[in-house]
Design a protein around this nucleic acid. Structure first.
Length: 413
DNA sequence: TCTGGGGTCCTAGGACCC
DNA sequence: TCTGGGGTCCTAGGACCC
């Protein structure tokens, strides 16, 4: 049995290119919310020196000089394309772990190399997306293999007992899955610079230095699997909705509208997942990059007496929290709402102590969801979200929702 | 002028209890 | 005046991932 890691190449950029062929001849980057940072790059954009996560304004000159296409992110499109990819993978085996929007681990019996090549061809045919596949005995090694598959002819690479030492020896330790910037620094300062050196580290030492995560990585690099494939996603524990504003917000009225909007959308998501929340947090923050004004950020948490999924009830809590955090004379740039302590929204947990009014409000939330699902987002809205929304996130270069909205289909001719 | 959003896990240390 | 030891639970902060 082998573990395969299928990872879509430059996923967001590739999704855009499927529907706009003109983008295939140009370097392309996709931007984070608010058109702030680069979150996906075509290979050609990578070669021009655009790094992951860089703020757009810092590479403005490279972008202009090379006619790089810059797109706002289009999550409706990427989410839908992801579902198609995952569906296609399940045609080959039910043993699929959806690891992220653009990656999945698969467990394959028999000729893994042959299966990988077939999966890759079919996926391209069915979705138009190029995928690379790494093959190995453990997840961490499959990640390493995938890294090499990105550059390999045919987009498939297998790490085996025979080649593993050579490969790990030439891989910088910071490229290993689970080794971030801090861990890399800690390892390098002790002379551990390659993945091979990390693999050869004493497990106890790795644990002391990098906690149990480090111990697991060492074991996995040695070929001992300690991160099994998870076929069912574990229950979600928290849910967040937060945004950076398109401009600063100074009035309590606007801040309340923003927090109200985030609450409404997080509550919708709560009900979609059949969950209820038992703790609600709100945070607000000024721009941390502005040096001439003092930075202010603060958060407040409210416990909910009985877990709830009612927008009305949640709005009461988050708006009160928002008011308690608000300080006049500040320029707010970001706010967010988090629901934690999520539990299944069974009738008992939610409604045992509800009065008639509570049940009516419950039905209001459900009715709003139903209407919006049927007739499109924001057909009906709560007044708390405001009407003008001058603070709204910028997304000036968003492509169309080609696959999820009838009004935005591709037109031919 | 312009700097994303949404998650999880682990640990240390304090509070509290017997 | 002397002043234990062990256990659990919770939280904040830090690390990681995409």
């Amino acid at each position: 049995m082998a573990i395969l890691l299928a990872d879509c190449n430059n996923f967001y950029v590739s999704c855009e290119r499927v529907f706009d062929p003109k983008l295939r001849k140009r370097p392309v980057v996709v931007l984070s919310n608010n058109d702030g940072c680069v979150v996906a790059r075509s290979n050609s954009a990578k070669k021009l020196g655009i790094t992951m996560g860089i703020p757009l304004f810092k590479v403005r000159d490279i972008v202009d000089a090379n006619n790089i296409a810059t797109l706002s992110s289009n999550y409706a499109l990427y989410g839908d394309m992801s579902a198609r990819v995952m569906g296609a993978l399940r045609e080959f085996t039910p043993e699929v772990e959806e690891y992220s929007i653009d990656e999945a681990f698969l467990s394959i019996d028999g000729d893994a190399d042959r299966a990988a090549r077939e999966i890759r061809l079919k996926l391209y045919k069915w979705t138009g997306l190029p995928v690379s596949i790494g093959i190995a005995q453990t997840k961490a090694l499959a990640k390493v293999a995938n890294h090499l598959a990105k550059k390999a002819d045919g987009g498939v690479y297998a790490v085996t007992g025979g080649n593993v030492e050579v490969i790990l020896d030439s891989l910088p330790v910071g490229e290993v899955w689970g080794v971030g910037r801090q861990y890399e620094k800690a390892l390098r300062s002790r002379g551990i610079e390659s993945a091979l050196q990390l693999r050869n580290m004493e497990v106890g030492r790795a644990r002391r230095l990098l906690t149990v995560a480090g111990a697991r990585i060492v074991e996995e690099l040695r070929g001992t699997s300690c991160m099994p494939i998870e076929l069912a996603p574990p229950a979600r524990k928290s849910m967040v909705c937060s945004r950076t504003f398109g401009r600063t917000v100074e009035t309590l009225r606007e801040l309340r509208e923003a927090v109200g909007t985030f609450t409404i959308s997080a509550a919708e998501k709560l009900r979609r997942h059949g969950l209820a929340t038992s703790a609600v947090s709100v945070w607000i923050s000024t721009n941390p990059f502005t040096l001439d004004e003092p930075h202010y950020s603060n958060s407040a948490t409210a416990e909910v007496a009985f877990p709830t999924d009612s927008t009305h009830e949640l709005l009461g809590l988050t708006l009160a929290a928002c008011e308690s955090l608000y300080r006049a004379e500040r320029k707010y740039k970001k706010a967010g709402v988090m629901f934690a302590g999520l539990v299944p929204a069974s009738p008992i947990t939610i409604r045992m102590f509800d009065d008639e009014r509570g049940q009516r409000l419950q039905r209001v939330s459900e009715a709003v969801d139903k209407i919006n699902r049927k007739h499109g987002r924001d057909t009906i809205r709560f007044a708390a979200s405001g009407l003008k929304c001058g603070w709204q996130t910028r997304a000036d270069r968003r492509s169309r929702r080609y696959t999820t909205n009838w009004g935005e289909l591709v037109t031919v001719g």
